[in-house]
Write a protein that binds this DNA or RNA. Structure first.
Lengths: 239, 239
DNA sequence: CGAATAGTGTCTATTAGACAGTATGCC
DNA sequence: GGCATACTGTCTAATAGACACTATTCG
């Protein structure tokens, strides 16, 4: 019989074969009227030169969860923190990475295009790719599959929450939210339905400002500082 | 410049410090009118003797995903495959396991009590614990937190699908489904609402049999062999 | 004033909640 | 028949879809 303290003293973490562990994120935005995902060109082997999701290894010294790893990698690539970040799913298996049995904790994130455009435009190894262009793009590892899962999550949540606001700048108009929602779902949405939800959510406040976009000025809104996302009990587009 | 083949030849997976990786599952059932979770007593250090979720290390030789690991561990403990198995979430951090920075891919599962009761009853290191008893139980690692996340998932999904059928035996009555749903949600549900959903789902077929439970006989139903779960676009208990 | 964009009013359709009512089987 | 359990009918309430309507701004 050994105590836990004795056991830990003689514990050797390298005794058992362990999978290769990474963290990858699917960061979406609306770029020029197109739902787009951030891709990064791999600087090193394996799959050197291929486009891949932003991510990498956990820094055991610095990161105190895979959430921290995802946030650190995204901030390195975009210069800012994403507005939304939630765990997606973990992908694993012996063949998804040529180095051997591997596991990646995938995260799902949203950001406003204007918030990171200056940073992205200044580097050559990161770019926004419209999701409509993905079928023609061969990505590293199983990253296409991960993006498909993230896209499914994004569309589902858009039907029962106002998640698309996290793709918009801090101050936004209802028309911007409406357009973002239609772009994500790929079909027309009743503006009235969206506005009803917008009011019922209690998540937003007027800034008092308004902007002209050609005709009547539109009011500018922002998220209330501590408002949590509101989940509706019915979906849009229920058919 | 090295090719990927050259790179892989000299690749040493033990060069970087790596987290300890495990797979744990939260298996629910309805045991004697109580929503219960399967716990296993830890045979070894660390946390020897404490009750914990069924799980363990990935077998790099045998498992071709964490799904396979979860299934293997659950089958070892219960003698059968769970009726429902989906990924929950990955929990990670430097302090959740005394051996160091660790990560567990958590899975969420359902089974009929009668399907595994013979096996569970025959061993002394596994038992069903009603979720109502969990606040008074100190579990290993962060397993209480994992169970809370699973419980939340179970209750959410019960509101927009007929997930509770996966806690029932192969052949079941509408009353059993109704009771399971009420037990999971912890409040009364309109039987009529459930039956409307049951019919609309298209997931079930009559067996032609019926059982007496004291008064009028109840029809026995089963899931159609290849039916996928039906997701409704509105929730129960929307208030 | 007309055109364009922003925003409202209000009718219909769908489906959950409530609960009364009918059916069946055992004593 | 009486009672308990299984099952159905149907009204109300909530909210999404549809779309006509009003409001504001600019030339």
């Amino acid at each position: 019989m050994t105590t836990e303290a004795e056991y830990l003293q003689q514990y050797d973490p390298s005794r058992f074969p362990s999978p290769l562990v990474t963290v990858d994120s699917v960061l979406f935005t609306i770029a020029e009227q197109a739902l787009s995902v951030l891709l990064v060109q791999r600087a090193r082997q394996p799959q050197q030169g291929r486009w891949a999701l932003p991510g990498g290894f956990i820094d055991i010294e610095k990161d105190d969860s895979t959430h921290a790893t995802a946030l650190r990698k995204l901030t390195e690539k975009t210069g800012v923190s994403p507005s939304w970040l939630e765990q997606l799913e973990t992908f694993s298996g012996p063949t998804r990475d040529p180095r051997g049995w591997s596991l990646t904790a995938a995260w799902f994130a949203l950001i406003a295009w204007v918030d990171c455009q200056p940073h992205i435009a200044s580097v050559s190894d990161a770019k926004w790719v419209p999701v409509s262009a993905l079928p023609n793009t061969e990505l590293a590892f199983d990253h296409s599959e991960i993006i498909q899962a993230a896209l499914h999550r994004l569309r589902q949540k858009t039907m029962y929450s106002l998640l698309p606001v996290y793709c918009l700048p801090e101050r936004f108009t209802l028309t911007q939210l409406h357009e973002a929602t239609e772009i994500i779902l790929g079909q027309p949405i009743q503006r009235k339905s969206l506005i009803r939800r917008f009011e019922a959510s209690g998540m937003f406040e007027e800034t008092g400002e308004s902007v002209a976009t050609g005709a009547r000025k539109a009011r500018l809104w922002r998220r209330k500082p501590d408002a949590n996302i509101h989940l509706f009990s019915r979906n849009l587009l229920a058919e």
